[in-house]
Design a binder for these strands. Structure first.
Lengths: 328, 328
DNA sequence: AATCATGATGGAATCGTTTCCATGAACGTG
DNA sequence: CACGTTCATGGAAACGATTCCATCATGATT
């Protein structure tokens, strides 16, 4: 039961060389062909697997990459995580996952844990703002932000969907259908999108039509229902995420607002069920998996890492949840 | 930039004690009150955070817990992962996530990586069967299976939803509605459910009505469409997961089968969109998050870990996707 | 008063790797 | 032929914690 695992020392002994040589051979250093072969043979013979523990300690860093998302339950973050995992797997790196619940404090706690583990490369969907990140960025870890930027930190690369274009396209689409009172139903950390929304609606801007929910489903529902009840004059809604879209559909149904007859709805993020919904939802698709993959790529290629950021395209997918403005 | 992190040695020096004493104090060993205070002061003063790297090497294991799921994109596994994360967080342990794609080979590869990382406690939704797990279980790591058992390994605890009862309830419900030709649309690793299905339908059993998809969405759709076309006489379907349910809805829609008029549908796993679907889907709810949490609990409490397994209840939630048998 | 048990304490070993450095052989060049 | 350069190689020193073990002081028991 207490079988000691085979160490580099065993391999060295079996191959009749020093441990340094074994290490060199296994990590691609220089060695004579014959020695190399002897070592490799001995290694396979003994089924040697180098322990990451020893290496990590010596190099003062654990290989893996850290991933921080607000909520792994959310389809969008699920796909983003999948992208990170795919990239990490092809690089042979483990991924340490943590959730922040979009809470800056919890985020800091998770970062602390990652540092303690020696994780030095982190992909994060940032919850906090610039000041919050200040201290952790000074610890010297390699960060890449995904999905959202941290304003005023353009020295940290960010992989983003082109929210601005997405919002504008959606708003143009809705105004083109005749809508004048368009609401934005937002979640945490959507400063960019809201700015784009304000800009896109231009003269139609009505601050009361911009509402925010906190992270949870309940909060999203409350925000949507509150909005619909408080402003029955609105005719279109742009929901800033799939949970918010879900809440909007439910709230509309509850208040007997027919979609799209009474209310047009566009949702950020294309999820499989958008097509199953009744009516099928018009969405702004985001390449969630790509975002994750690209972010992981960036964080792994820490060296000459110049790109300040990557902007991936969004796409408006028209289904059935938008119609011409209801004529009163 | 090259700020050496503060080590236990620094703390020892600052407190005027030996490193052994610092270690003892910090890990709750015996020490005199005054020494304890001096050490604690010095530690907070220097903002000391013990490096997991050193500890891991000495103890020959990395703290964290490994989590292996088929597909983090799937809502069910997302919630399961969330449960594991919640438990791990409260225990202060990091979680290393890997996906297997329901592929035994990839699963083995992930296990290998975890072992290399020194991860000794793993929660997994097993993809492979008993023989596949044989060697990895001999490596001495602490395993807990979640969501699915590995047959013939009752020495490894498993946290499961009560599939048997769930299937039976669903089948009883459908037969109660008059259905006689009931299909099962399954995914990988659903041996238990299929067995329960066979048993529940009893004399109505028709092997042709049991079909399987591989993991992907496409495969699920193909299986569903094939089933519906090949056997237009069936009147009810039990889908063994949310992706399969989704595929069934899509395929039915494509083939102009009206739900529930032409086809009754029960889906395993309650997902948020089940309610948004048209018609809202009748589902067998599974406590995915609980499964994850309980599994993590079990794997963390490695000592006197007696329970062979945990069986959590499922619940039939009746919505609108089932109706009386279509009269020809 | 002598002995023993108890508990606090620090030095040193240990975990498994990488990497620095010294050694020696082989080789090419003046 | 002598000398410098290059290369393969192995011993040993890190890395930062935990933990064994010996030491010493203190108080209790005979």
């Amino acid at each position: 039961m207490n079988v000691r695992r085979t160490t580099i020392k065993d391999v060295a002994e079996a191959a009749g060389v020093g441990v340094a040589t074994v290490s060199r051979v296994l990590s691609g250093g220089s060695a004579s062909p014959e020695t190399r072969e002897r070592v490799l043979n001995a290694a396979t013979q003994l089924d040697y697997r180098p322990s990451a523990l020893g290496r990590n300690l010596r190099q003062r860093r654990s290989g893996g990459i850290g991933l921080l998302v607000p909520d792994i339950t959310d389809s969008f973050y699920g796909r983003l995580a999948d992208g990170v995992l795919a990239c990490a797997r092809s690089a042979g790196e483990p991924v340490v996952l943590g959730t922040t619940g979009d809470d800056a404090e919890r985020e800091a706690e998770q970062i602390g844990m990652l540092l303690e583990q020696g994780v030095e490369r982190v992909v994060a969907v940032p919850a906090g703002n610039a000041e919050i990140w200040e201290p952790t960025l000074r610890t010297g870890l390699t960060m890449v932000f995904a999905h959202r930027p941290v304003t005023a930190r353009d020295d940290v690369p960010a992989v983003l969907a082109d929210d601005r274009a997405g919002v504008r396209t959606a708003v143009d689409y809705l105004t083109g259908l005749g809508h004048r009172r368009i609401a934005y139903l937002g979640g945490p950390g959507q400063g960019q999108r809201v700015a784009a929304f304000r800009q896109s609606v231009g003269a139609l801007l009505d601050e009361e039509l911009i509402v925010f929910a906190r992270g949870s489903r309940d909060s999203a529902y409350a925000a949507a229902a509150g909005l619909f009840q408080h402003r029955p004059d609105l005719t279109a809604v742009l929901a800033g995420g799939n949970q918010l879209g879900e809440a909007a559909v439910l709230a509309a149904r509850e208040l007997d607002l027919r979609v799209p007859k009474d209310l047009s709805l566009v949702m950020f993020d294309d999820v499989p069920w958008a097509e199953l919904c009744s009516p099928p939802l018009t969405v702004i698709a985001q390449p969630a998996q790509d975002i994750g993959y690209r972010a992981a790529e960036l964080v792994l290629r820490a060296g000459a890492r110049r790109p300040r950021g990557v902007l991936l395209p969004t796409e408006l997918i028209v289904r059935g949840s938008c119609g011409p403005r209801r004529t009163p």
